[in-house]
């Protein structure tokens, strides 16, 4: 288990700044996680003098996912925040350049949210569909990452 500290969103910037002041000057990771009701942000910073690391976590409600940008502390955070923003629909207040980083199509649903349907998965044969002899199931199993309602919607829509 990696030791981490959970901080409220309004302390996110101050805590990150405090870490820089304490020698954790290297931005190792800034990533998002969809916790359904909340979006989680994980920041891991390293002290290059002694390789010690500190991990900070904050959670914002999915209904208003908003957190201050850390791009003034680490210029590189700007890219990671752009990616988190398009992938998880999080708003970074004070971001110098909040354009999408990887997605081009404005209409794309945030790809890494669990609620986003993955149409490719409905049209790609799932290699797990072939059951081993001993594990025949009564009901066909849905591939991981595909929800029953997407299947229903897709079949209902095309019928």
């Amino acid at each position: 288990m990696i030791a981490h500290q959970i901080v409220p969103p309004d302390e996110w910037h101050a805590q990150a700044q405090g870490a820089v002041g304490a020698g954790f000057t290297f931005l190792d990771l800034l990533a998002g996680i969809d916790r359904v009701e909340e979006r989680e942000l994980v920041l891991r910073v390293v002290n290059p003098e002694n390789d010690e690391a500190r991990t900070l976590i904050t959670r914002v409600p999915a209904s208003d996912p908003r957190v201050p940008s850390l791009a003034d502390l680490w210029a590189g955070a700007a890219w990671q925040e752009r990616e988190i923003s398009e992938m998880f629909d999080v708003v970074f207040d004070g971001h110098p350049d909040p354009r999408p980083l990887l997605t081009r199509d404005e209409s794309t649903e945030p790809p890494l949210l669990k609620s986003t349907a993955l149409p490719e998965r409905l049209s790609t044969p799932w290699p797990g569909a072939a059951e081993a002899q001993e594990r025949k199931r009564r009901r066909p199993q849905l591939p991981p990452g595909v929800r029953q309602e997407w299947v229903d919607e897709a079949s209902g829509g095309s019928a």
Partner: peptide, 19 residues
């Protein structure tokens, strides 16, 4: 044992097995 557990758990669907 060709049990298919890895194939079904792999999130990117990149394992295939014939048995």
């Amino acid at each position: 044992t060709s049990c298919m557990v890895c194939v079904q758990e792999c999130p990117t669907w990149c394992i295939t097995i014939d048995s």
